[in-house]
Design a protein around this nucleic acid. Sequence first.
DNA 1: ATGAAAGCGCTAACAG
DNA 2: CTGTTAGCGCTTTCAT
Lengths: 384, 384
Amino acid sequence: MTAAEKHQVSRTPASLPQPPAGRRPQKGGGTRLNGRAGIRDVAAAAGVSITTVSDALNGKGRLPDVTRRHVREVAERLGYRPSAAARTLRTGKSGLIGLTVTTYGEEPFTFTEFAYFAEMARAATSAALARGYALVILPAPARHSPFDVWANVALDGTVVIDPSDEDPVVSELVRSGLPVVSDGRPSGSLPVTAWVDNDHEDAVRGLLDHLAESGARRIGLLTGTSTDTYTRLSTTAYLEWCEQVGQDPVYESYPAHDPCAGAVAADRLLARPDRPDAVYGLFDPNGTDLLAAARRYGLRVPEDLLLVCCSESTVYATTEPPITTLSLKPGRIGNTVIQLLIDAIEGIGPTLPTQRVMPTDLVVRTSSQRQGARTTVSAPRAPD
Amino acid sequence: MTAAEKHQVSRTPASLPQPPAGRRPQKGGGTRLNGRAGIRDVAAAAGVSITTVSDALNGKGRLPDVTRRHVREVAERLGYRPSAAARTLRTGKSGLIGLTVTTYGEEPFTFTEFAYFAEMARAATSAALARGYALVILPAPARHSPFDVWANVALDGTVVIDPSDEDPVVSELVRSGLPVVSDGRPSGSLPVTAWVDNDHEDAVRGLLDHLAESGARRIGLLTGTSTDTYTRLSTTAYLEWCEQVGQDPVYESYPAHDPCAGAVAADRLLARPDRPDAVYGLFDPNGTDLLAAARRYGLRVPEDLLLVCCSESTVYATTEPPITTLSLKPGRIGNTVIQLLIDAIEGIGPTLPTQRVMPTDLVVRTSSQRQGARTTVSAPRAPD
DNA sequence: ATGAAAGCGCTAACAG
DNA sequence: CTGTTAGCGCTTTCAT
């Protein structure tokens, strides 16, 4: 006698059967699952076994087309929806990818706050969906958040945007064997599965060259006080470039996540005795702030001051004048991050770790083109 | 050593006698779970049963504090992470909430594309997280799209932004018993669990009054050709308002999801023989487009033309001149939607259906304040 | 106070 | 080709 038979119980509706051995409802019978049909209901209704149902629905076995079609029909008729939870438990794959962005400052949740994140997230979501995965938005690991949402979600992998040094959650995830791909080089020695980042140094050099082409003699930098790799690499590249062309560095730093501090720093930069005749701002709002500051000091852009900032915002196309921006192409990054992650999840691709450096895009507008400046482009620097 | 140690010693780890049928693999034994510790490993290591482990970790049973602490310690030491999949399967709750936005036009995925969605999603994510849920971004159900993703994720409920008429996925979800809360009144007879929306009619009346206060004699409208409730309600309110004050309606419609069409429509509106001296644009980009069109026709804002548009974008604070905007307060909506949905999921609150109408916010800037116009604000209309 | 056992619904070996 | 069976790892009565 099989276990099933042993547990078999008559489907007497209201009668209270004695509780011994099995309370299992009849196998082919009643509707469970919170009123919805389960795989066994479909099997019964279609007159096949649950295996056949599973195979028919997943295109797995080598069933005759008739059976397959029939089962699918019955399933449809019963409004059968397979339980994702059961499938996940069984297969160990949830089809879910976590997406986290490190929050700066006091803000609880800065997702979509900045054009960069918004676009990156959009692209990532889209790319994941295209490969059959969905994204779960998860909070940056605040120290001891109330619910540990992280623990309650079955993830196949995680994307981390701008992981901070030694991020505890990331290490934890990696240690537990979950693939983690980061947008931005991991600072410290975070052992991510892979990372994607821009070639920030190259971008800065290119844009400084562009400003110099436009006639800039002294280029200033608006940078951040934080130690993330973006800020660090960009600033270093600036300093090196200055040294190379023999210009004294002129820069102001401020805490990048403080919106007011940026405006103040922009002002400070233009108030200096060694006022630059061109400025590159590392952060999105710098363009607006610098423009405002320039106005206060009666500086015309681009006649008296050339301006470039790093931003994904479209507003700089319509400012007065339009401002040249460096785009990090977050969409491309989001897409790449997801491809890498899913490859890792599915065991495709190299056995890691992988890193991908993506190009940036300088969108040249009026603010960086001085009237009468040469428009020829200098030959690319020789690789040294 | 500690009480824990004592506990462990007194609890002689019962070497299990051979189970009757002997089919079951060793219960307290080896490490499964893809190399990670399972609840049974913890139980064995702590010298207790898996029940006790579960209770200890979930704060459920009435265990002595010592046991609880001991179990937690052991779990921590083994790096035990409970399987979310198993928990979900067992409890029927995943802690996951779906978030969908109906896509317009051909775009594959417009999530975060518009400031409204971005902010709404941000707030919703934040609110969900605060109550222990995470959001899963899901694609709008394109006609016969890979429905797969929807079927492969265990959802406790879903948020739908701007559901289209008779959205098949929504009906399907509702039919299968899943709570669905929509942002925006469901068009047609979509049987959502609850919905949240702005009082669009009131908003339009208020803003038209404001324009009239500022001296507008003929207010034009830039509206959409689509039939969604937002467009419909706003347009109707406009027409009724016109009738009420005895003004001939002056409006242009265009397909709202087409970015170029908006600029053209703005131009058309200002090119009319019965050119309005004030315009309200229903969609985000209308402000910029109208400003550009006004410039082309040599109209000064606000001297010759008053301008208001519905937008969440911050750019209108810094345009020349700054433009008055109607904010729908997407953050508030996102938060409310989530509260309603989680209440429904957890069985709190009214037995539905619920609907919540949220106020809007007119951010008055230069573009709607004609020089010399009265600045007093009319008393709010009495509730009728 | 603690443990044994029964599954949640599904998929994957392995028999027939 | 199709069915039987054994769990995936956890929560939960129920019995001790």
